[in-house]
Amino acid sequence: MLDLSWMAWTWPTAGFFIFILLCIVSMGIWEKFSPGGGPRRGVFGIDTTRGDRLFISLLGSIFIFLVWLWAFSTPLWGAVMLSFIWALFVFLRV
C-alpha cells in the first residue's frame, strides 16, 4: 500500500472533496434522467447550461466565504446562508 500520509488528509477536507464529487455525479445523473437541454440566456447576458450554473455557484460561494471571513471572521453561518441563496439565484435566474 502506498504511503499517503504526506497528503495530510483530514475528515473536513475529505468531506469537502466528496461533496464536490457528489455534486458532479448527481449533475450527471440528473442530466441523464431529465436532460436540461441547450443553454439559456440568464440575467447576466451569458448562456449557461446546468453545469455552468453549478460552477458559477461554487466559485461564487468560495468568494462569499472569503469575503465573509475577511469582514466578519468566524463563525461562517452567514456565509453558508448567503452561498445557499446565491446558488438558488444562479440555478433559477442565471
Binding site: W6, M7, A8, T10, T13, F16, F17, L69, W70, L76
Partner: peptide, 26 residues
C-alpha cells in the same frame, strides 16, 4: 488536494499535522 489539506493545518515537518481550521485563511 494536498495543498487544500495543508491550508487547514499546521506542520513542523515529518508529516505531523495539526488541525488549524480557518486560521491561515483569516
Amino acid at each position: 488536494m494536498t495543498v487544500v489539506n495543508y491550508a487547514f493545518q499546521e506542520t513542523f515537518g515529518d508529516n505531523v499535522f495539526f488541525w488549524e481550521g480557518l486560521t491561515w485563511f483569516e
